[in-house]
Design a protein around this nucleic acid. Structure first.
Lengths: 221, 221
DNA sequence: GGAAACCTGACACCAAGCTGACACGGAGGG
DNA sequence: CCCTCCGTGTCAGCTTGGTGTCAGGTTTCC
């Protein structure tokens, strides 16, 4: 999952980034609304965490604009207790949930999961193609008679591929999906992860096909 | 498609306008930021090509301003090599892609298509003619009962032809479209790729017709 | 009939992709 | 505090398949 965290408190932001990264998510951090606008204009996120009090404006106006441009990215608003004058108005603006600072990380994770589930983005979290089944929540891949626990990076790659079987993903696009901007990674890393996934898929009726010069796609044989 | 080209180098701008016009696009040309601002204020564009170094200011400020006003028009930034201090910073500003001068026209077209496809503005990527269907996103050609994965060069050629069925493309024009100008390729290469595409189209009701002395065109029989 | 334009099977080249090995670093345990 | 384990990304050498050229054949047109 790719998150956008909009938060001006640097230590707090760092902590959230660290925590979410542990779960294998990619997190981009924007310290103000201007940066945040640039991010959402160029990147597609699975979830936005939005602080309300920001140096260059009010987070709620950002949210309003976001929804007006038909961007339905699930959003959780982070707010100090004193700012919760009207929680209803936040939800009316298009927030999916809100949390009061100080943030409890376990609760944050739980609410993220809840919101994502409610939105049905990865609804039941179990995807299947051919004879394989993949539980995105637990990261377990059932191929043949084996149950394989995918590790975080493998998991994210597989998640991307199985969500659009048959579609070609170029290596630069995959690098973009798996790594955040400040991670400088060679495209060879993608090749390596494709190879590792292929080992897991060996013997099943699903393969990752190379389309030379274009990219990779997942398909049933 | 309606393009806005913001570029102060007149000969270069002329060449880009000519080239894009060949594809049937409408191109407005602004030589400086002031003109460009007037254009975007009055007209809705499908795509903006933006030079960074301009007589009356920096193109990146134009872009920033554009995005702040919630204008999401797909934008490709044109830049001299020395200016590419940081690819990321350009993308952060809200550019969809960037190109280094000197501009390779074949590449420019490809990138425009890619950006437009990514933005999803051009509806679906599936084109059809007669009994064949072509999915530009996956590069798969459905002809008869077969699904053929086109490779990059075949794909580029077919893309050009199917975007204007019946139109005659000369061999020099096709060389121009498929190869960048540091690739020194004989026109025979086009003949070879036409032959390869014809094999894929065999048995369908679509053929590539030779118009002796003029070029090739794609048509339904 | 001859020349120019076009077609095509074969081929060699080389960049794209694959993969085993390794080095690095964080986590966790002793 | 050190050691080990494990996930990760890089690298170098290898394999492979797409690519453009060529040579010889065929068609077209004057």
């Amino acid at each position: 999952m790719r998150f956008l965290l909009i938060e001006d408190n640097v230590p707090l932001a760092g902590a959230v980034v660290d925590r979410l990264s542990l779960d294998g998510h990619v997190v981009d951090h924007a310290g103000d609304l201007e940066t945040a606008r640039d991010y959402v204009a160029t990147t597609s996120y699975d979830m936005i965490l939005l602080d309300i009090m920001l140096p260059d404006g009010d987070g709620s106006s950002f949210l309003t604009h976001l929804r007006l441009t038909e961007n339905r990215t699930p959003t959780i608003v982070l707010t100090a207790r004193s700012e919760v004058s009207d929680r209803i108005s936040l939800l009316d603006l298009g927030a999916d949930d809100y949390m009061v600072k100080p943030i409890d990380f376990a609760e944050l994770e739980a609410r993220c999961r809840a919101v994502l589930r409610r939105r049905g983005s990865s609804a039941s979290s179990v995807l299947s193609l051919g004879a394989i089944r993949f539980d995105a929540a637990s990261g377990v891949l059932h191929a043949g008679s084996e149950d394989i626990q995918l590790r975080t990076r493998e998991l994210r790659l597989f998640e991307v591929l199985i969500n659009a079987p048959g579609m070609i993903f170029s290596k630069p696009a995959l690098v973009d999906r798996l790594f955040s901007y400040d991670e400088d990674v060679s495209e060879n890393a993608i090749e390596v992860y494709v190879a590792r996934l292929r080992k897991h898929l060996a013997g099943s009726d699903v393969t990752i096909t190379t389309v030379r010069g274009l990219g990779y796609k997942l398909e049933q044989t």
